[in-house]
C-alpha cells in the first residue's frame, strides 16, 4: 500500500462493510484465555479468502488471527482495516516474518486504542449520556432511556464505521504518529476531565443519601440533615463517595468487599432510622 491515501473503490467499500458487520460478532466466543481472538479471525475470513488463493496460506492466515486479542470494540474496524492492509502486502509479496509483525502490530495497537475507547466511550461518554438520561428517567419519563440509547450510540457507531474507513485507507502509520506526538494522551486526559466533572455532578444528583435522625439537643429540636445542608449541600453523599475512593485507592480494598461493607453498614444505619 502506498503512503498516499487512495479513493475507495467499490471493492474497498464492500470490504469495509464486510469487516464492519462481521465485527459485531467478535465477542461471540469470548473466553478469558484468548479473549476476542477467535472472533477476530472469523471477522477477517472472507477478506483473507480473497487475498490468499492457496488453501494452506489462507488457513494459516485465519489461524494467525485467532490468537489472543482484546480491545474496545469501537476501534475494532480501524484495527481490522490496518491488519487487512498488512495482509494484502503479504499476499502480494510474502513477508518472511508476517506472523510476528502482524501480531506485534495488533498487540501494540489494541492497548492504546482500548485505553482511548474505554476512557472516552465507556468512561466518559456513557457517564454523560446516562446522566442526561437519568435526569428524565428518575421522573418516570420514557425520553430518558431513549435519549441515552440515541445519544450514546450515534457517535459510537459513527466512530466505529469511519474508524474502519480510516484504518483501511491510512494503515498503521496514523495511530502510532498520534501516540508519539502525545495527542492520544492529551485526548485521554481531556476525557477524564469531562468524566470527573460529570461524576462530581452525579454525586449530588444521583446519590440520594440523607440523615433521617431528628433529636432534641438541650430542648432545641435538632435535625442533622438540615444543619449539614447549611454547611454544604450533599455533604453526606460527597463524604461517603470520598471515603469509598480512599478505601479503593489507598487501602486497595477490593470492590466486592466494599460492596458488602456498604450494604451491611447502610442496612444497619437505615434499619436504625439514622439514614435514609
Amino acid at each position: 500500500m502506498s503512503t498516499t491515501t487512495n479513493n475507495l473503490t467499490k471493492t474497498d467499500k464492500k470490504n469495509i462493510h464486510s469487516i464492519f458487520w462481521r465485527g459485531f460478532t467478535i465477542m461471540g466466543e469470548m473466553t478469558y484465555v484468548r479473549m476476542q481472538g477467535p472472533g477476530f479471525g472469523w471477522t477477517l475470513m472472507p477478506l483473507l479468502r480473497k487475498l490468499y488463493k492457496n488453501d494452506d496460506d489462507y488457513y494459516a492466515a485465519v489461524a494467525r488471527h485467532m490468537q489472543y486479542f482484546n480491545t474496545n470494540p469501537v476501534f475494532l474496524p480501524f484495527l481490522q482495516g490496518i491488519v487487512y492492509s498488512m495482509e494484502k502486502q503479504n499476499a502480494e509479496k510474502p513477508m518472511p516474518d508476517i506472523e510476528e509483525s502482524v501480531q506485534g502490530l495488533k498487540v501494540g495497537l489494541m492497548g492504546p486504542l482500548a485505553g482511548l475507547g474505554d476512557s472516552f466511550f465507556t468512561g466518559t461518554w456513557r457517564v454523560i449520556t446516562t446522566g442526561i438520561g437519568l435526569g428524565l428517567a428518575t421522573q418516570g419519563n420514557i425520553l430518558g432511556p431513549l435519549l441515552f440509547l440515541i445519544l450514546f450510540h450515534v457517535p459510537y457507531y459513527f466512530v466505529r464505521y469511519y474508524g474502519g474507513v480510516l484504518g483501511y485507507k491510512v494503515g498503521a502509520n496514523y495511530i502510532s504518529e498520534a501516540q508519539e506526538s502525545g495527542l492520544l494522551s492529551s485526548i485521554t486526559k481531556g476525557c477524564s476531565l469531562l468524566g470527573l466533572t460529570m461524576i462530581g455532578a452525579m454525586t449530588y444528583l444521583n446519590v440520594p443519601l440523607k440523615f433521617s435522625v431528628v433529636t432534641k439537643l438541650g430542648g432545641v429540636p435538632f435535625n442533622l440533615q438540615t444543619t449539614l445542608d447549611g454547611i454544604l449541600k450533599g455533604l453526606l453523599p460527597l463524604g461517603v463517595v470520598w471515603l469509598l475512593i480512599w478505601l479503593l485507592r489507598k487501602k486497595k480494598i477490593s470492590t466486592t468487599w466494599i460492596l458488602i461493607g456498604v450494604i451491611v453498614i447502610s442496612a444497619v444505619l437505615g434499619g436504625l432510622g439514622i439514614i435514609k
Binding site: V127, I245, S266, K276
Partner: peptide
C-alpha cells in the same frame, strides 16, 4: 428502612469506582 438506605447509599460506590478509574491529580 434498611432497603431504602441501601439503595440510596449504593450509587456512591458506583461514583467512587468511576473516580478511581479516571483518577488524575491534575484534574481532580
Amino acid at each position: 428502612g434498611a432497603l431504602t438506605a441501601m439503595s440510596a447509599a449504593l450509587p456512591a460506590l458506583g461514583m467512587a469506582i468511576l473516580v478511581n478509574s479516571m483518577w488524575d491529580n491534575q484534574l481532580m
